[in-house]
Amino acid sequence: MAIYEENREGVSGWFRLRRYSVERALYLMQRLSGIGIVIFAFVHLLYTGWHPGGWGDVILGIFVVYHTLNGLRLVLTEHGFLIGRPIRAVYPYRKGTLYGSQRYLVMVILALFVIFILIWSYVALVIQAG
């Protein structure tokens, strides 16, 4: 059968995260949160001022905050910052994209993500609900 012969993973390949580095999971979440924001933005534009409210606001906040923080990381790394200079590959290999400053940046954005989400959840669930 041609589909088995081609052996292409398709979209399920995005979700195969277990044996790769954490950046692959970050990429998947960036994509899914982006799709979520696009859906929200369409509705928000069609019905001006609409937002989901309550727990919906928390989920939207998770999408927006994650997409923003990881987007800032990608602006830096995808233009060649913080991934290290070219070096001579010597065993044991320490690849600049997986170690060092890039990995610290991942930890920083994840920590900031947790902090911002806690603040935002408090605002959305406690203050705005009155």
Partner: peptide, 9 residues
């Protein structure tokens, strides 16, 4: 930003 993202996907 949004439509370019959709285009990339």
């Amino acid at each position: 930003h949004m439509l370019n993202g959709v285009r990339a996907i």
